[in-house]
Simulated scan of single mutants.
Amino acid sequence: MHLHSVTTLNERKSILKETVVTFAQRAKQHDEENSFPMENIEDLKKIGYTSLTVPKAYGGQGLTLSEWLPLQELIAQADGSTALSIGWHIGLVSQLAEHSNWPENILHKLFKEIVEDGVLLNAAASEPETGSPTRGGKPTTRAAREGNSWIITGRKSFTSMAPALDYFIVSATMDDEQVGNFLIHKSLTGVKIKETWNSIAMRGTASHDLYLEQVQVPEDAFLEVIHPGNKRPAGWLLHIPACYLGIAQAAEQFAIDFATSYSPNSLQTAIKELPNVQVKIGENEAALLQARYFLYGVAQKWDQISDDEKKQMQSELGSVKYHVVNAAIEIVDRAMRVVGAQSLFKDNAIQRYYRDVRAGLHNPPMDDRTLIQLATEAFNK
């Protein structure tokens, strides 16, 4: 079935659940080989997932934040790398549909290509020299005006889903020292992907380095002026905690299945009957409930308020990411304590969940930035 042919969340979940079964089966191989799950992405394209947040006027479904985040969590339960990778695309499209300073003709063309051709995009903003763009560092990537074109040169890191991307949204410092975003197609001369990704976590995201060597782009490839470190609140970034919440749920289910089936000969029953095991599982269930209420409560608020009110939500959005990711790490840890030493065996998926969930600490916004902002606001009340 196709996701565009149904209208409810439960119907979408049902279709997606059937699709992601193979994602879980492939996850171990991609993790061990440090390879990109291209087949997962193609499967998502086939069911119409990659165009769900495109506005209905352009052939998409125009899903709101609270409508597509649960789908991201579901994908993450099967494979965190796939969820985080496609989340960048889905989220950016969601943001462009909701609020964008981009030229209308560029948006129209891009939305049409996403729906009709299945093109994918992601931002390429991080650089080895500047670190996370949320810290406010100015890009060392340069964009020089040359007649009716721009010549762009630089290197970007953490370019998730690099092998599957058709477009890169590249930040670059221009001749007047302002910073701008440019839309660059993968086919242009001088665009190169170097396979540098070798992390112990989220290995399947293929977050390789993007090299731009004197790439010539047309004048209308310039999208907008941006201000690093001073961006408006972005609700779509909640795809990050949704992903790690999904991984935590997968770890919890692994622990439940293990506790239900494992019965050492020192006991007359499975370890699920032990009070200490029940306490850990109970703590995890409580933490999952709390995290979901916070995540989806804020997502629903975002969907219901005005654009001006959204500008005041930076602290809430950051707090969701802080609480959910740290809760997910604790949930995975407790799940591993239920499983015991077998949780460290490479053949058991829970050790991958342990590695993958920690990557959330290094996705934006960073914990210290969120906490300092909350403290500053508290002191200024």
Rank of each mutant, 00 (worst) to 15 (best):
S5A: 12
E11A: 11
S14E: 06
V21W: 07
F23T: 00
E32A: 14
E33H: 13
N34I: 07
N34V: 12
N34S: 14
S35L: 03
S35N: 08
F36R: 01
E39P: 07
D43E: 08
I47S: 04
K56A: 10
G60R: 01
Q61D: 06
L63W: 02
T64L: 15
E73P: 06
I75M: 00
A76W: 07
Q77T: 04
W88C: 14
I90P: 09
G91V: 05
S94H: 11
L96Q: 09
H99S: 15
H99C: 14
K109H: 12
V115N: 04
A123N: 07
S132F: 09
T134K: 12
T153K: 03
Y167K: 06
S171M: 11
T173Y: 05
M202Y: 08
E213P: 08
P228I: 04
P228L: 05
P228T: 08
G235L: 03
W236G: 02
I240Y: 03
A248K: 03
Q249M: 15
E252Q: 14
Q253M: 10
D257C: 07
I271A: 02
L274E: 09
L274N: 05
N276I: 11
N276K: 15
Q278K: 13
I281P: 02
I281G: 02
N284G: 05
A287E: 09
A287L: 09
L288E: 13
F294H: 12
Q312I: 09
S315T: 10
L317V: 12
N326P: 04
N326Q: 07
V332K: 01
V332I: 06
A335F: 04
V338E: 01
K346S: 15
P365G: 09
